[in-house]
Design a protein around this nucleic acid. Structure first.
Lengths: 114, 114
DNA sequence: ACTAGTATATAGTATTACTAAATAGCATCA
DNA sequence: TGATGCTATTTAGTAATACTATATACTAGT
């Protein structure tokens, strides 16, 4: 699927939170998982800006560990604030996606124009 | 629901296309409909930038008509290109929302970290 | 006159994901 | 040895989009 960039805005961070919530992981692996999920155009740089934001907003704990496959990895885990944020994200998603599906399935009616 | 701004990016234009596809309408009315749908914080200025974009990209036909309630209204209808764009929008929405729901309902599995 | 509701329009800002590249470690193969 | 490829983080700069805040203007009712 091409050009879904704009549609990913506002949801990608939530996806990253969800992925981290499954167990400690690091930027490169998060990118891989997003790609496996179907968001094939997501690149490391994008995930990096998101994890930086999570750090800045104190939503994650960080631990640096060596890797046998390359340079050291920065592992992230969600802290309490991050879990709270994740909950809020899914609540927003439920709201927005339900409204859009409502629109899609034609439930809103035309207002009369005088 | 507060602060869904970022989540609306990339979907609001599609919503406007959908609303216009139901029959000719104008900026102010589109704003009302989005608010009725539940996106209560959407304001005229936002819809205006979207309709301007639709005009610029030649996705709509325009007709100006007087109103008994205020200044003249600029009525929009989707042209062929606009209808095509709307189809593409719903396709993208189907894709993205299904992937996110997949993530939500836990279908992706953790990769093994060695 | 004044206010409220209708209606379009615009300048400037914040947020976010992107492109493109630099840096660096380890493994394998010529 | 060096060349390539995969792993992995980081950064500078850009594009897209919805926002705030405001200006303008028309009509109706008090």
């Amino acid at each position: 699927m091409e050009n879904i960039t704009e549609m990913l805005k506002g949801v990608l961070e939530g996806c990253v939170l969800e992925i981290i919530s499954r167990g400690e992981t690091y930027g490169y692996e998060i990118t891989q998982q997003l790609r496996e999920l179907g968001f094939t155009d997501v690149v490391e740089g994008t995930v990096y800006t998101i994890t930086m934001r999570l750090e800045k907003n104190n939503l994650v704990d960080i631990e640096k560990k060596p890797s046998t496959m390359g340079p050291p990895r920065k592992f992230y885990t969600l802290n309490a604030a991050g879990q709270e944020q994740l909950k809020i994200f899914w609540k927003k998603w439920e709201f927005v996606s339900s409204k859009i599906n409502e629109l899609k399935t034609n439930k809103i009616k035309r207002r009369e124009v005088k």
